[in-house]
Design a protein around this nucleic acid. Structure first.
Length: 859
RNA sequence: GCGGGAGUGGCGGAAUUGGCAGACGCAGUAGCCUUAGGAGCUACCGGCCUCACGGCCUUGGGGGUUCGAGUCCCUUCUCCCGCACCA
């Protein structure tokens, strides 16, 4: 699910990894050997079951999760960055004493598996499981702290039966329903796409394939029932979710408050056209009603119209026009008169009915009132076709009244109603409200809220997904499969063609069944579910992955939820995250959980790029994760992805740069190695600051200041890159102190090296364990808590004070920390570099910031 | 068009949120060590002026607030991302 692993991006399975050669970095005698070290500690962790976790109400919990991957192709460093960020968070929280749930699983159903199976003449399950084995191998090689006992794979019946169970619960509640509907059809996928999967009129997987429109019986989930809640609860996510994700969801839900108004059609008794408007206050200015080209009433209106022939030709041409959003948005407005008229219910005016290419059938009612003077689109349309532009709103400031002569563009703001019968002269906001009331009172309209969000079509004409658990019976119609017959298993060996109907339809032993109600012959539903169903609730299953009685135990979910930190790509800002939020609310209403939002904090990490574009197999710019582990070791790979850029930014992969991370870990290893013999027996912890020599104090001060800032970078700021920079400085300093070793007691050196090791532990856990052992510890580092920095030791005895004259740095003074102004200023004035600039001038003002800076303003 | 984000050395980036701009690393230069080095170590490494001490300029451009601005305000340019005829 992470964007680096985009679920079913439709790319082929060919395309070799490029980048590094696979020669491992040479290990000189006794040097840093990541291969040996990493294998050693992974084995110890597994033996000690370090990452196994259970509900424990005595400990604060922390649930950190990376979006589950779609197991396809090679795992590259883009994946690894995502998981490394999660792993650092998990390990830091564990060191902080939290009971950390950090699971991993596989988004295993989906189209690429089916396509690959067709291409390679194998079974989707085989292909998928091979990929899962490969992915797991790489993840284990990187030493991520997953509780592998909780691993899930969405293509297993133990998992997908609960998709079916949820579907039945939704069916019972009317949240799942079936309707014939015009759907988005991708000819290449040979299946239906959700609205969310259509990008600018093209398939989200096939950027070159225009989506077609077809009419099919489809299953839908009524996400629109939750539109208001999904919108409202975005407020709960503020602070925890990126602002732009919240904004994207808000726009996607697209709430508009307005009114629907019926315009009676002249000469057609009983027929009326309903329009939706957010500006009913402008209705006196309507000079036409405009329909979408696919409006259902259109056929009736055109039949026998005085301009029927011409209109039908124009309609055909209009329907031929591109429906691609990027074209549509910029396209010239086109339309034609139908030959029919309607009556404006407010003023009785008879206005023409037109058809316009800019009116969308999918939004509102598929018909709009055309108010040229107060809507930009209507203005453009009316100008082109010579429709009148009655002015019915005047700007509130009377300075520049609108007239027919000076109306150069639509005036779309609120103002004062004009030429609007009894409403003239009142503020449009007020008129809007009163006119809505009038429409309701006179029963030709009503206030209404319209959402852009549409119901979620989940039917897919594919094999590799969850079978929809219903049957069709001649006698009983649509019948739900009873719970005790779940799961409805996928047939083992379907005929996969990649075309047309679901392969399940061509599998008689699957299709033909008995009606659960009457026992008579019945046919199974042959469509499968959109795989976004799988990923809408998978993180609940991690709480209780082997439950065979329920999707999960509510008590366990109550302990672990909400997810404290979710990490993934911005790609899923709408689809996955919106569906997940919906699912949570539906589960709440079913009674499984009590919370309304599943994810407390969301982090969207940047992509790893090569050559300025995201790594992907189809582009052939992939840097294989396993190759990196073989060449430099997992720790170097982890460190580099953390160091090269802050986690939210895109990262350009550089083979030259990773060498720097490799060299650093080598230096650290050698540093500790040089001291390990002499420090093994030294006392650990409990340094007496008072007894420390100046050199010791300096070193300890730096170590504890580093600890203070690194702790902040981990906990608050998520600045892993600068945390690493700080640790590098500490290690450089420790190295520089080596010639003065005799002036630094072993326990002080040990303290410094131990702190450095502990700070590295979340990022380079294998090396850190090894160093910890080298420093004489027999207990694994995994048992150790994050150290607290020592305020006394971190305190500066002396500080460097910058001296400025007129804001320019002229000198620096080293003085005792905390020195007051009275004491400091004479020292400043005595400083020769300062005196030089002050000479012969008058000091107008003195600014003193304690322990930091003195600024003398002279004139 | 609307919404969001970003512009800092040759490069990735830092600046504890108004207080020494360029930490840390990459690349580069010089040297040491080495039979050798894709190893290690030392030093230099934004621009201009100066033999040097030092001085001046510099965070996309312009303006402002302030003793002091990469950081705050106004304005402008450029780039990236999302949505896009939503009535």
């Amino acid at each position: 699910m992470a964007d680096e692993t985009t679920r079913g991006n439709g790319t082929g399975s060919d395309g070799a990894a490029t980048g590094a050669g696979n020669d491992a970095r040479a290990v000189s005698g006794g040097g840093y050997d990541p291969q040996g070290i990493e294998a050693k500690w992974q084995k110890r962790w597994a033996e000690a079951r370090v990452f196994d976790v259970e509900v424990d109400s005595n400990k604060p919990k922390y649930y950190v999760l990376e979006m589950l991957p779609y197991p396809s192709g090679t795992m590259h460093m883009g994946h690894m960055r995502n998981y490394t960020i999660g792993d650092v968070v998990a390990r830091v929280k564990k060191m902080r004493g939290f009971n950390v749930l950090h699971p991993m699983g596989w988004d295993a159903f989906g189209l690429p598996a089916e396509n690959a199976a067709i291409k390679n003449n194998t079974h989707p399950r085989t292909w998928t499981n091979n990929n899962i084995a490969e992915f797991q191998k790489v993840m284990r090689r990187f030493g991520f702290s997953y509780d592998w006992r909780r691993e899930i794979s969405t293509c297993e019946p133990e998992y997908y039966r609960w998709n079916q169970w949820f579907f039945l619960r939704m069916l019972e509640r009317g949240l799942a329903y079936r309707k014939k509907s015009r759907v988005n059809w991708c000819p290449k996928c040979a299946t239906v796409l959700a609205n969310e999967q259509v990008v600018n009129g093209f398939c989200w997987r096939h950027e070159d394939t225009a989506v077609e429109s077809r009419e099919i019986e489809q299953w839908f989930l009524k996400i629109t029932d939750y539109a208001e809640q999904l919108l409202e609860d975005l407020k709960l996510l503020e602070g925890g979710w990126p602002e732009r994700v919240i904004t994207m969801q808000r726009n996607w839900i697209g709430k508009s408050q307005g009114a629907k108004v019926r315009f009676v059609v002249a000469d057609f008794p009983g027929e009326s056209i309903e329009v939706f408007t957010t500006r009913i206050d402008t209705i006196y200015g309507a000079s036409a009603v405009i329909l979408a080209g696919t409006h259902p009433l259109l056929g009736k209106l055109l039949a026998g119209s005085p301009v029927e022939t011409a209109a039908r030709e124009k309609l055909a041409a209009l329907r031929q026009m591109s429906t691609k959003a990027e074209d549509v948005a910029t396209a010239e407005k086109v339309g034609f008169f139908t030959g029919r008229y309607v009556t404006n219910p407010f003023n009785g005016a008879k206005i023409p009915v037109w058809v316009g290419n800019f009116v969308l059938m999918e939004y509102g009612t598929g018909a709009v009132m055309c108010v040229p003077a107060h809507d930009e689109r209507d203005f453009e349309f009316a100008t082109k076709y010579g429709l009148p532009k009655p002015i019915v709103v005047q700007p509130a400031s009377s300075a520049e009244a609108l007239t027919d002569e000076n109306l150069a563009q639509a005036f779309t703001e609120y103002g004062v109603s004009a030429n609007s019968g009894g409403y003239s002269g009142i503020a449009t906001e007020v008129a809007l409200d009163r006119m809505s009331a009038e429409a309701e009172a006179r029963k030709f309209g009503k206030r209404e809220t319209v959402y852009r969000l549409k119901d979620w079509g989940i039917s897919r004409q594919r094999y590799w997904g969850t079978p929809i658990p219903v049957v069709y019976c001649e006698k009983d119609g649509v019948v739900a499969v009873p719970d005790d017959e779940l799961p409805v298993l996928l047939p083992a060996n379907p005929k996969l063609t990649g075309m047309g109907e679901s392969p399940l339809a061509a599998t008689p032993e699957f299709v033909n069944t008995k009606c659960p109600k009457c026992g008579g012959a019945a046919r199974r539903e042959t469509d499968t579910m959109d795989t976004f169903v799988d990923s809408s609730w998978y993180f609940y299953r991690y709480c209780d992955p082997h439950n065979s009685e329920a999707p999960y135990d509510s008590a366990k979910a109550a302990y672990w939820f909400p997810i404290d930190q979710y990490i993934g790509g911005i790609t899923h800002a709408i689809l996955h995250l919106l569906y997940s939020r919906f699912w949570c609310k539906a589960m709440r209403d079913i009674g499984l959980v009590k919370h309304s939002e599943p994810i407390e904090r969301l982090f969207t990490q940047g992509m790893v790029q090569k050559g300025g574009v995201a790594m992907s197999k189809s582009r052939g710019n992939v840097v294989g994760a396993l190759e990196m582990a073989e060449k430099y070791g997992a720790d170097t790979g982890r460190l580099y992805t953390l160091f090269a850029a802050p986690p939210e930014k895109d990262l350009e992969w550089s083979e030259e740069s990773i060498e720097g991370s490799w060299r650093f870990l080598n230096r650290v290893y050698r540093l500790v190695k040089r001291h390990s013999e002499s420090l093994r027996a030294a006392k650990s912890g409990g340094i007496d600051a008072a007894a420390a020599s100046p050199n010791e104090k300096a070193l300890l001060r730096m170590a504890h200041q580093t600890l203070r800032r690194v702790s902040q970078d981990f906990d608050v700021r998520w600045h892993f890159n600068s945390a690493i920079a700080l640790i590098m400085e500490l290690s450089n300093e420790a190295q520089r102190m080596e010639p003065l070793e005799k002036t630094v007691r072993p326990e002080v050196r040990k303290e410094v090296l131990e702190l450095m090791t502990l700070m590295l532990a979340p990022m380079t856990p294998h090396l850190a364990e090894e160093l910890w052992e080298m420093l004489g510890h027999s207990e694994g580092l995994w048992t150790v808590r994050w150290p607290e920095f020592n305020k006394e030791l971190a305190k500066d005895a002396e500080v460097e004070v910058v001296v400025q004259v007129n804001g320019r740095v002229r000198g620096k003074l080293t003085v005792a920390a905390g020195m007051g102004e009275a004491e400091l200023l004479p020292l400043v004035m005595a400083e020769s570099s300062v005196a030089h600039h002050v000479e012969g001038k008058r000091v107008v003002k003195k600014i003193v910031v304690q322990d930091k800076l003195v600024n003398l303003v002279v004139a």
